[in-house]
Structures are given as C-alpha cells and as structure tokens.
C-alpha cells in the first residue's frame, strides 16, 4: 500500500498547510509519517513521496540523508539519544553515557539484543540545564527525559520493553 493510501487523512492534512506553489514543503512531515511504523524510511516510501511532490527520488533521498532525525536503516524500536554536547558534558553527560552503556552491555550506536533500544550520542537538544538528559525516538514520536540517572533510565527501558512486548 502506498503512503498516500495508508495515511490518506494525515497526508491530506499535511498538504493543506502549504500553498500549491509550496507543495514540496510537505516533504519533511511526510518523511516523519513514512518513518512512523518501522523507525526508518524505506526506498518505496521515498518513491511515494517523490511522486506525490513531483520531485525526483534523489531529491527525497538527499533530504533524508541531510537530517539526523531521519533514518534509512533499522535500529532498536526506540532510539535513546543522549546529549553529550558541551553544556551537558559539563554536567556529567559523558559519565552518564559510559555508565548507561556499561549497564546495558552495549557500545554507543549499538542495539540491545532484544532489539528494543539503540543508544546514540547526539548534539544539543536545548535542555542544557537539565543534564544528563536524552530523548527517545520511537513509534509515538519524540519525548524528552531530563535530569536522568542510570537507574531511572533502566526503569524507563524496562517499561519500553514491556510496551514493545505487548505490541508484538
């Protein structure tokens, strides 16, 4: 099923935000839509979007490759994206990252063996006063988790595992 068929209501609503001459503006919201279910954007979804917006597939792929929140490869169901940028690092983010990875037994960029969580390091998320912090990117969108400890994070990961298990 094409993206337009699958999410007809959302696609219509997205296109209505932009003037006809600015149809291409729907590119980014459509890419988020294409990513919703699997957590990454497939080639066929890119083809759908190219067709909808009268642009080439290469142009769509160029946009996908440019922005860090779009993914072309499957990872864990949830991406835990820890800010390790300067302000957070001054407040212990690097140690938090090391401890978290140690606890999960994975390295930065890797996925837990059950496929639920991938841990990634990202640049500033505009929450510098609430470090250590991270966002989770998953099927429900993006959510911030601030003033975190490893214990609180493990608790969160366990609840995400339960959600993932229940949705199987």
């Amino acid at each position: 099923m094409s993206l337009a068929q699958k999410y007809s209501k959302e696609v219509k609503q997205i296109l209505s935000k932009y003037p006809p001459e600015g149809k291409r503006s729907a590119m980014m919201p459509l890419l988020f839509l294409a990513q919703r279910e699997e957590g990454y954007i497939t080639k066929s979804a890119m083809q759908d979007i190219a067709q909808m917006l009268d642009v080439t597939e290469t142009e769509v792929a160029g946009v996908v490759g440019f922005y860090t929140l779009y993914h072309e490869e499957k990872a864990g169901k949830y991406r835990i994206q820890v800010c390790t940028d300067l302000p957070c690092a001054l407040r212990g983010a690097e140690k938090f990252m090391d401890d978290l990875c140690g606890n999960l037994g994975i390295k930065v960029g890797e996925t837990t063996s059950d496929g639920v969580v991938t841990v990634e390091a990202v640049t500033c998320l505009a929450a510098c006063d609430k470090a250590p912090m991270f966002q989770t990117q998953g099927p429900e969108g993006i959510k911030y988790h601030e003033n975190m400890t490893v214990d609180k994070t493990v608790e969160l990961i366990n609840s995400l595992k339960n959600v993932a298990e229940a949705s199987k």
Binding site: K17, Y18, S25, M28, P29, L31, F32, F66, Y67, T68, L69, Y70, V122, T123, C124
Partner: peptide, 10 residues
C-alpha cells in the same frame, strides 16, 4: 499560523 517541524540540523 502553521507549525512545521525540522528534523535535526543546527
């Protein structure tokens, strides 16, 4: 007024 989300690019 409409909102528009970017996708991670400083």
């Amino acid at each position: 007024i409409y909102t528009h989300l970017g996708a991670g690019a400083y």
